[in-house]
Design a protein around this nucleic acid. Structure first.
Lengths: 121, 121
DNA sequence: TATGATAATGATAATCATTTTCATTTGTGA
DNA sequence: TCACAAATGAAAATGATTATCATTATCATA
């Protein structure tokens, strides 16, 4: 029942490990890969089940899938052109962990994104 | 131009200060209040602009509106029961601001939420 | 009190991401 | 080759949110 289509995973990787289902689909289309939107959704969902990717939300509620595992990082996103810069967030990691422990939370994750207008926009 | 309809705010309060637009609308309907869905959305959006309520997301992406006190803060949310704790994020504020400036971004905002399982769940 | 400008309202239609349905294709083992 | 289960994807359904646009309420002023 492993629907973790390798082409989808590969595309997500090449997208910087950070993209929505629609974006993965459009990217594959543009590259001439033949795939259906449904399959993209199913593959991504399967990757989430297998804990290979993480799911979080954009400001408008659209789901974005993120390769998780070792290199945990955050993003600086331009609201104008959508350009994204990956950044390290050491301070945030510690902040999140200590606060969660302080309140007796376990199995803790966090999201932290910065958005604004880049110099070009 | 203040569209912060007081009936909507009042309903959100009575809903425990934590509900989606659809829920606020359905609640008002059930109570026999005559109001349109559009107005509910506009009123909630206006309350967000006025920083009277906060917007965050359910796991399925639906927006939930949340009465908040003054001041910018973040949330520690339980994935099990939905219980939410408001927290200060001094470290995060500085982190976001300095990183954004470093990359030449302006008009900057950020999100930072921590989620996990609380001690009860 | 009329009048008119402006803001507020809400029914309806449009949008957009996501999920369901279902028929078809593909892979695999007998 | 045959049969059968899993995978695929086109198209329709769903559900939240937003845009349109005509109508209605407000309110200052003539």
């Amino acid at each position: 029942m492993s629907r973790s289509n390798p082409r989808v995973l590969n595309t997500l990787e090449r997208a910087g490990g950070f993209a929505s289902a629609q974006e993965v689909y459009r990217l594959m289309q543009r590259e001439g890969q033949s795939i259906g939107l449904t399959t993209v959704y199913r593959a991504l969902q399967s990757l989430v089940n297998d804990k290979i990717v993480d799911i979080l939300r954009r400001e408008d509620g659209e789901a974005i899938y993120r390769l998780c595992g070792d290199g945990h990082h955050h993003h600086l996103v331009c609201k104008g052109c959508g350009d994204t810069i990956e950044i390290e967030g050491g301070a945030v990691e510690k902040w999140a962990k200590s606060l969660a422990e302080e309140h007796g939370f376990r199995d803790v994750g966090h999201t932290a994104e910065i958005f604004g207008l880049c110099s070009k926009c």
